[in-house]
Design a protein around this nucleic acid. Structure first.
Lengths: 223, 223
DNA sequence: GTTGCCATTAGCCAAAAGTCGAATCCGAGC
DNA sequence: GCTCGGATTCGACTTTTGGCTAATGGCAAC
């Protein structure tokens, strides 16, 4: 019961059932809340654009069109005034830690009991950063390479970001153009811009960079 | 003290210090053991070829040239008679589970005390599958997509496999050709063969497939 | 309004990627 | 020795990428 003067929330999750459950929980916390839904990267764009005044975004890490921290990184750097809570089925401590480091205002595991979820929503609306129990954020900062990629990626325009995600599916320029309903020349222009901003020289490297922001653990490369 | 009639072992790890420690432990278990070392994918090929009669391979999951289960999958399907023990700094239960499912004869976390490592070596030489304590293999089989990729990958020839790993580093055909000392046309031919065997249509998709065999958790895609 | 950024497209070009067919090499088996 | 099949190699050819320029329209800030 935090505020009720027409609070605006956005729930982005591709699982209708869970979306509904979450919305229900939100209504319990904020009776008069207005809630907008998104079930994919595309609809998230639309909803965020249509409601730039939203108070809070509940973001799933896995939706059609995006996977991992890409969307979170992008959101945090392009809509700074919109706090984002990550809602995810993965509740690995390192994933939680990384979500917070990427700017999330909280992390709600999907496996949480409703009571807990409601407590989380309340806490976050109070401005707290809510985390599951037993989570030690630890001192270790974000992998510097990962941070660099996140920053580079948030410099992308919405279209570019979307194209990048599609590159990450192994699609051809031609296929991307068709799916987005624009000419291949446009996609090429976007890709060129993406490569420049990401500081890589070809699409494969761009895709590899995106992979580093997946929910899986970071590089653990040579050490 | 299991056997000592000229046992042959291969230790593949890019960390000299740890390699030495492991060799020392092996000698403690098998006094007269002959040990061959590899510190990269390239040298692993050479050593395995030079000693096809080896009794056991200790394989690190992260070496220059390979990362994740790729090398394990390849080894298991191309040198079936050579049992392979995974030695890794990552000791996540799911990683251990997947290593076994990819055919490893055991899993030794690098963090183990020497005593434990020696016990593990002994056990494995007796033909047992050794695992760290508290590991429940569980019933869940390998992600079917992951299994498909592993199978496809083990159908690759050594050269093709190597090229695939280099694709996974975002290298150009030209760079791969230079590093392997052959013409670009050769690499292109390899790549074409790789794409066919992996059932993908371009290098980006091949790289994405390889990524699925990384130490990180499997897909957890749409669900 | 003007300025600037973004998105869109075309056209051109060089480089890279990918396909095909063919020559060569090499080990297993006869 | 010989043959056979697969691996490796490569050149020629087509398609895809990616860089560059330039022009258009929309939108937001100044």
């Amino acid at each position: 019961m935090t505020q009720s003067e027409n609070s605006n929330f956005i729930v982005a999750d591709d699982h209708p059932l869970f979306r509904e459950a979450l919305i229900h929980a939100i209504h319990n916390c904020v009776p008069g809340a207005v809630i907008h839904e998104a079930d994919s990267l595309g609809s998230l764009y639309e909803v965020v654009e249509a409601h730039p005044d939203a108070d809070l975004l509940f973001l799933d890490l896995h939706m059609p069109g995006v996977s991992g921290f890409s969307a979170l990184a992008y959101m945090r750097n392009n809509h700074e005034s919109l706090p984002t809570v990550v809602v995810s089925a993965v509740d690995d401590p390192s994933v939680i830690r990384r979500a917070i480091q990427h700017g999330a205002s909280g992390f709600i595991p999907k496996s949480s009991p409703i009571r807990t979820i409601e407590a989380a929503i309340d806490a976050i609306l109070q401005g707290e950063v809510w985390l599951p129990d037993n989570i030690d954020l630890g001192a270790e900062g974000l992998d510097s390479e990962e941070a660099r990629i996140a920053t580079a990626m948030s410099a992308l325009t919405p279209h570019q970001f979307r194209v990048l995600m599609m590159l990450g599916e192994g699609l051809l320029n031609k296929q991307i153009a068709y799916q987005l309903g624009v000419s291949e020349a446009t996609i090429k222009a976007h890709v060129t811009a993406i490569l420049r901003k990401m500081q890589v020289t070809n699409r494969t490297q761009a895709v590899l960079a995106v992979q580093r922001l997946n929910t899986k653990e970071p590089g653990l490369l040579v050490e």
